[in-house]
C-alpha cells in the first residue's frame, strides 16, 4: 500500500486492539470451542444408559461461565465427576433415559450467550451411527435430531471458520502488517495466496492428526511473527529495503505455516464422525478464507477512500501503526513465553 493508506492502519489496529482488550491475557485460547459428547453405553427395552462428557474450555483464566443443562427426564445414575485439565474442565456424568427419547431432546447451555464460545455436540450410538452439530452463543441450546443433511453441517463449519478468523486478532494483525509491506497488486495477490496455501497445509495436517505443535510455544511463535513485521514496516516508511520487503510472499508462506496450526485450535475433531472430517476441514478453511478476504477487502476499500478524501496526517501518526504492531507483537511474545515457564 502507498503512503496515503498508512495512517489507516493505525485506525484499524486501534479497532482491532479494542476487540482484543478483553482477551489480552491469554488471547489465543478464548475462541477454543467446547465439546459435549454423548455416548450410548447400554441399550435396553425400557431404558438406555448414556455417558455425558462436557469439556468446557478455560475462559480468560476462569472456569467457563456456561453450564450444561440436561433434560429433566434424564436420570443421573451417579454423582457427576469433574477433572481439571490444562486448558479445560471435563465434566463426566452417566444418565438413564427412556427408549427413543433422545431424538427431540433439548440440551441447554445457560451462560453461553455471554461468551464467544462455540460448542460441538456429538452423539455416538451403540449401532455405530454418529451425528454432530454446532451450538453458537446466539442460540445456546441443542435439539438432538439424529442424522442431519450434510449441507447443514457444511454451513455450520463455514460459519465456524469465518467467526474464528474474525476473533483471531493476532492472525488479522499479521495480515494487516503484510498489507502495509506489499507494493502493487501482483505482490498483494502473491502474498495473500502464499499465506492462504501455507495455513491451509498445516490446518489440514493438524486436523487430520499428522502433525501438531503444543499450544504454548505455537502461540508465542505466532506473536513473534507479528513482532517480526513491526521493524519491516518502519523500513518501508524510511524507504529502505530488505528480503521481506522484496519477497513478502516468502515470509507470508513461512509464518502462514505457523498460523495454520493456530487455526486448527478452532476446529476440534475429537469424537467427530470420520466421514464428516473432510467436509468439516474443507468448509472451516473456506470460512477462514472468506473472513480473511473480507478483512483484506475492507482494508483496501478504506485505503482507497482515504486516498480519495486526501487525509493528511502528522509524521508521528504515520509511524504509529508500525510501532503499535511491533509493540503488540513484543508484548504478546513476552506474555506467551512467560506463560510457558
Amino acid at each position: 500500500m502507498k503512503s496515503a493508506s498508512r495512517p489507516l492502519v493505525l485506525w484499524l489496529a486501534c479497532a482491532l486492539l479494542l476487540i482484543g482488550l478483553g482477551p489480552a491475557p491469554a488471547l489465543a485460547h478464548e475462541s477454543q470451542p467446547g465439546l459435549l459428547e454423548l455416548r450410548q453405553l447400554t441399550a435396553g427395552s425400557s431404558e438406555q444408559t448414556w455417558e455425558v462428557l462436557w469439556r468446557a474450555p478455560i475462559y480468560y483464566g476462569q472456569p467457563h461461565p456456561a453450564r450444561l443443562q440436561l433434560p429433566a427426564a434424564w436420570q443421573p445414575v451417579a454423582e457427576p465427576t469433574l477433572q481439571r485439565l490444562l486448558s479445560s474442565e471435563l465434566h463426566r456424568q452417566l444418565v438413564r433415559i427412556g427408549p427413543e427419547t433422545l431424538d427431540g431432546s433439548s440440551i441447554g447451555f445457560p451462560g453461553l450467550e455471554q461468551t464467544i464460545t462455540d460448542v460441538f455436540v456429538r452423539v455416538t450410538r451403540l449401532d455405530g451411527t454418529e451425528s454432530s452439530q454446532l451450538v453458537r452463543p446466539t442460540k445456546p441450546q441443542a435439539t438432538l435430531r439424529g442424522e442431519r443433511p450434510w449441507s447443514q453441517s457444511a454451513v455450520e463449519y463455514l460459519a465456524l471458520g469465518f467467526h474464528h478468523i474474525l476473533l483471531g486478532i493476532d492472525h488479522l494483525l499479521f495480515v494487516l502488517g503484510l498489507l502495509v509491506i506489499v507494493r502493487g497488486v501482483r505482490a498483494l495477490v502473491q502474498t495473500i495466496t502464499a499465506f492462504t496455501v501455507a495455513h491451509s497445509i498445516t490446518l489440514a495436517l493438524a486436523t487430520l492428526g499428522y502433525a501438531s505443535i503444543p499450544a504454548p510455544p505455537l502461540n508465542a511463535a505466532i506473536a513473534l511473527s507479528i513482532l517480526f513485521l513491526g521493524p519491516e514496516i518502519v523500513r518501508v516508511w524510511r524507504g529502505q529495503t530488505s528480503f521481506t520487503i522484496r519477497h513478502p510472499w516468502v515470509v507470508a508462506f513461512g509464518f502462514g505455516l505457523l498460523h495454520g496450526f493456530g487455526f486448527a485450535s478452532g476446529l476440534s475433531t475429537v469424537g467427530m464422525p470420520r466421514a464428516e472430517i473432510p467436509l468439516a476441514l474443507l468448509m472451516f478453511n473456506v470460512g477462514v478464507e472468506l473472513g480473511q478476504l473480507a478483512f483484506v477487502g475492507l482494508i483496501l476499500l478504506l485505503h482507497r477512500a482515504l486516498r480519495v478524501l486526501e487525509f493528511r496526517w502528522p509524521r508521528w501518526a504515520e509511524l504509529g501503526p508500525a510501532y503499535l504492531i511491533g509493540t503488540l507483537g513484543a508484548y504478546w511474545t513476552l506474555q506467551r513465553t512467560v506463560m510457558m515457564l
Binding site: 479497532a15 478483553g22 450467550e113 464467544i116 462455540d118 453458537r136 452463543p137 446466539t138 476473533l167
Partner: peptide, 9 residues
Amino acid sequence: VNSGLGPFY
C-alpha cells in the same frame, strides 16, 4: 444484538 463474537462485533 448478540453476534456470538463479543461486544465489539
